[in-house]
Design a protein around this nucleic acid. Structure first.
Lengths: 156, 156
DNA sequence: CCGTTTTCTTAATCTACATTAATGTATAGC
DNA sequence: GCTATACATTAATGTAGATTAAGAAAACGG
């Protein structure tokens, strides 16, 4: 637990780092973000004074987020405990699901979301009415129907 | 921790319930969802066999989600501990932030998202370039600029 | 202080998705 | 089996937001 000064634009964490840290922001401003396949940045959260910025989902696995400073900042760096107890691991799994859902909602088109849905929930496609899948994806049933028929065409 | 049978369409949890429960799905299919101001349902997650369905963010506060059964199911009902320790409370806060973010992304227009952003991060609007706010909201800087000027007009 | 770079705005065009509505199909209840 | 209800598909039209590009304004580095 040591206090460090970071300069604007300084990078604190790269996606893929193994043992990620948490940062309590004393002053200044951090952000966490991802970069998608097209090289586009998607800001995940801002961290002004008093906030904690971290890849909540990372424990002993590689992290999903980049973290850098948007202003000169003073932060307290906490080494995250890599020995997580059972309950903590459960929470982290849930957070990971939510984070990936947010990234999907922010970056993927309706068709891509549908593809993603099929691979995460392969058994459910046949079990629920389509309008519910649309509701999960945040689109209309009509749009989903159109996406599906487009998909069939392009597969031929 | 008791096993219960639930019928298709049976409601397990209403938004606003105080002490919410968690459900381990042994067989069947549950879902959790919200209803927005327009009465539209947004499915938050599906819970097939082996999944746990709950409002992850609710502890001793009213919950944000409805839960019901999409198929006849057998579930194990767990009374969630209302006495949460410090670490669990931290996780729950983070999950709450993520959940509300997902609901926002699924249901709100760009303009509404911007309004929402201003109220959650009042100090940050002036501190970061607008294209970063756009990145956070999942829209383009141009769309944000247009939304802002529309907003000014309608305020006059 | 000046020139460069970064950021913001405006406008034109284009595309994905929403909306509406009509038609088709399956399912359940009687 | 017949009807009602629930669900899926298709097509027409509308709209929000993406994309592109160009110019203005602000911030930044030397």
């Amino acid at each position: 637990m040591n206090k460090i000064n970071v300069k604007k634009k300084q990078v604190l964490q790269i996606k893929g780092d193994l043992y990620s840290k948490a940062y309590i922001v004393e002053s200044g401003l951090l952000r966490s973000y991802t970069i998608d396949e097209n090289g586009k940045e998607h800001i995940f959260m801002f961290g002004p004074e008093g906030w904690i910025v971290t890849d909540y989902a990372s424990g002993d696995e590689p992290c999903d987020l980049y973290i850098d400073a948007l202003e000169d900042s003073v932060v307290i760096q906490i080494e995250k405990n890599t020995e997580l107890d059972f309950d903590q691991k459960k929470f982290i799994k849930r957070i990971r699901v939510l984070q990936s859902r947010i990234i999907m909602l922010m970056s993927a088109s309706a068709i891509d979301r549908y593809e993603h849905f099929i691979s995460t929930y392969p058994t459910i496609v046949q079990r629920v009415p389509q309008y519910m899948i649309a509701s999960y994806l945040g689109i209309t049933p009509e749009a989903l129907s159109a996406a599906k028929s487009q998909r069939l065409k392009s597969q031929k």
